[in-house]
Simulated scan of single mutants.
Amino acid sequence: MGSRIMTMKRQAAELGRIRTGYSRPNPKPNGRPIPVKSKTFILTSHSREYIAAAADLYGGPVEQWTPQGQPVAQWRVITEATELRAILPAGDPLDQANEKWTAGGCERRCDGVTEKLSGRPCICLAQYGDDWHERKPEEVCRPTSRVGVFLPDLPDLGVWRLETKSYYAADALAGGLDTVLQATGGRGLLPVRMWIEQRKAVRGGKTKQFQVIVVVPSLPKLRHALSGPISTAAALDPASLDRPAIEAAPVERPDYLAEARGCRTADDVIGVWHKAREAGHGSDELLADLKTIAEDISKGIDPQTGEVGDQDDDELGPDDEGVYDVEVLGEGDGPVGEEPPAAPARSSWPTAAQPGSGARR
Rank of each mutant, 00 (worst) to 15 (best):
E63K: 15
S45R: 05
S23Q: 14
V62C: 09
E115D: 15
H46S: 15
G16V: 05
K39Y: 01
P35T: 06
G59K: 07
A103D: 14
K37R: 04
W101M: 12
G60T: 08
R19F: 00
L117S: 06
L94A: 15
D111L: 08
A97P: 01
G59Q: 07
C110R: 12
R85W: 00
L88C: 10
E80R: 12
T79Q: 07
Q96F: 15
T20R: 02
E14L: 08
A86D: 00
R24G: 09
P93F: 10
V77W: 00
V36C: 08
G16L: 08
Y58H: 13
P29K: 15
T20W: 00
Q64L: 00
P27K: 11
F41W: 00
N26L: 04
T40G: 02
A53L: 10
A13W: 00
R4D: 15
T102M: 03
E80S: 10
G105P: 12
E49L: 11
L15Q: 06
Q96P: 02
T79W: 03
N30D: 14
R48C: 08
Q64T: 11
A86V: 15
C106L: 15
T66G: 01
N30G: 04
E99A: 13
E107D: 11
I51K: 08
R19V: 06
A13I: 05
R109L: 11
V72K: 14
G104Q: 11
P35G: 10
A52Y: 03
M6L: 12
A55T: 07
K100Y: 07
S3C: 06
H46Q: 11
I18N: 04
L88Q: 05
